[in-house]
Write a protein that binds this DNA or RNA. Structure first.
Lengths: 357, 357
DNA sequence: CTGAAAGCGCTTACAG
DNA sequence: CTGAAAGCGCTTACAG
């Protein structure tokens, strides 16, 4: 009798083992039904085991978990998305990552969202393909959208708002009619600050290298800068457009330096361009920074602190800005309500060697 | 009679308009059933209209498209994914984006995949959280995975291979047993090249700043470099570990410069660290580059060409490497067959001012 | 070329 | 606490 039981048991466990083996071999992902079968419970019980806060008896849960582990089961998020209407996915639209500000932003945003079970789906929006990107975003049933490093954001923001998907504009804004939240720094105040400090330090011939003239960041920085300059009774010495790009900024610098006398200070609309400006000033014109020309940037990307540049710049509090972006988005996705909120962060001047002001 | 028809028509179109209005108002995304109703066709016909290559009569298709447009319909990719078993999503696992090599990689990869209708789902893998990332990857029914800028990739690669998801390791490799494709440059040859050229140029006291000692890139670069150095009858002057990080590399440089006589050349395992090395040499030790110490990096990131560094470096052909990554992945996702392939790209020395060799 | 129907793998009232 | 059943929005044989 004991022997008989032994045989039965080993036969059972053999069968069990065989069942597991066959299921795993299929390579088709294991489903909750297979787990239910092995655990001898209903498929609902399996689902509940993997749903936080659902009511399952501890014993049942344990049995399900054991079966799931044996088979290598993992809930299918696609199916969950379809039924729950939430994809646990946030669309991040960016156009270019040359400016180091954005990779850092991506890294931190992705990290913050992952902590809440969301993931970032990336959309590279080349200029001129905005409409294609909108289509793609809307097809993936994305729970929220962050727009960063994109021009012409307002169209995308509008479409998303229309179908009730929360949108946060990072470091940019669009006309007030559009239902979108924004997270920005006070670009205008930053521009004013630079003007004041340059003038206080005795600079007289002050030039400006603009970024993308259509972007809100550039417009605000420029407006604040020039307004404050004029308030001090100083006219802008010269200006050129760098489009927020390295090579274009180098070219803009040459334009500015084509006219003599040279400016004694240049405010550049972001750090990424400021590095190009510094290279041209030093390497091509053999001028000293800051003695001949002081240079001030905007952003405070890590490279600003590299010894070869040591760039004086207006800091945008990236970490806080990203945290706010994640917070707003998570909040609105939870409430399923799109109530635009606008967060503006203070900026501060980080003084380094390129302009001792 | 004419009047009667007029009334009927206006009433019909009013009803039609009302129907569209009500459907749009719901804000719930429009479904194929609603479109079918409006277009007076079956739901299947709507589906076929949006399935490339499905057989639909042109007239039917036109009617469906008109209805879809009126309602603002877009196929739900989540539902499509569930039934087709393809999420049109590629998981990209990265651990840090400080090194500019990776943002550029992301940008190009994302772009290449979008051209084929795939999108990048980002997974930030902080060290020590590898297992959590694996779980996340497997839950999203991802069609393929790219591992870049991650240590301990082999575990992730193995798990994915087990369930039949194609994996491409970008710029790294893992033990041969693991079923994963790799795209790398010939790091060992790159290391050899640097050694030869430094020796040829007359350098005698040659040091090395290592990256992450566990990474295949660092091991290969170091092995090639030292083997070639020894073959020329030269012993490595000194070495220190920079972990592929900026601050750690600065510290490593100080270690190396603690011993006199100073090396007359330093090979740094990547560009990102080389900038830190150059800063310390020039700013802290007031030495000249390349006269006192020549510096050579690896990668040829855009910053290498910035005037303030003008870094001599071994170029990794990023664009070609990314293209190969996308190609392999797209191919394997189409075939639904994981046959590891290994692409190795040639490297070349880009000579700039930091080492005239 | 077209429509009715099955089914992808889940969640979630509902009844017990 | 549990299971049977409906249903999320699609695709895709199948029969006509």
């Amino acid at each position: 009798m004991v022997y008989f039981l032994e045989v039965l048991r080993s036969k059972l466990s053999l069968n069990l083992w065989y069942f597991i083996f066959m299921e795993k071999k299929k390579k088709n992902p294991v489903t909750s039904i297979q787990v239910a079968k092995l655990a001898n419970v209903s498929q609902s019980a399996v689902s509940r085991t993997f749903t936080a806060g659902a009511s399952v008896a501890p014993a049942t849960k344990a049995r399900v978990l054991a079966a799931a582990k044996a088979l290598g089961y993992r809930p299918n998020v696609i199916a969950r998305s379809l039924i729950s209407g939430q994809s646990k996915t946030v669309g991040l639209v960016v156009a270019y990552l040359e400016n180091h500000f954005y990779p850092l932003m991506i890294q931190q945003l992705s990290h913050a969202l992952q902590a809440d079970g969301y993931h970032v789906l990336l959309f590279m929006a080349e200029s001129g393909q905005q409409d294609a990107v909108i289509e793609q975003i809307l097809q993936y049933q994305i729970d929220g959208v962050v727009l960063a490093s994109v021009t012409l954001s307002s169209h995308i923001a509008e479409e998303c708002a229309n179908i009730g998907v929360p949108v946060v504009l990072f470091n940019r804004y669009v006309p007030d009619e559009v239902q979108a939240s924004t997270v920005t720094s006070n670009n205008e105040a930053g521009g004013r600050l630079v003007a004041q400090r340059l003038v206080q330090a005795g600079h007289k011939r002050i030039s400006f290298v603009a970024g993308n003239v259509n972007s809100s960041t550039n417009q605000d920085r420029e407006r604040g800068f020039i307004a404050s300059l004029n308030a001090e009774g100083i006219e802008l010495w010269s200006t050129a457009i760098g489009k927020y790009r390295f090579l274009a900024a180098a070219e803009a610098t040459r334009e500015i330096l084509a006219k003599k006398p040279y400016p004694d200070a240049i405010f550049v609309a972001n750090d990424h361009m400021a590095f190009a400006v510094m290279d041209v000033i030093r390497d091509e014109y053999k001028l000293r920074i800051p003695e001949d020309i002081a240079v001030v940037g905007f952003d405070n990307v890590p490279e600003s602190n590299w010894g070869a540049y040591s760039l004086t710049t207006v800091e945008q509090p990236l970490t806080e800005m990203v945290a706010a972006t994640a917070e707003i988005l998570l909040q609105q996705m939870k409430d399923k309500k799109v109530t635009p909120t606008h967060k503006v962060f203070d900026t501060q001047l980080i003084v380094r060697k390129s302009a001792e002001i």
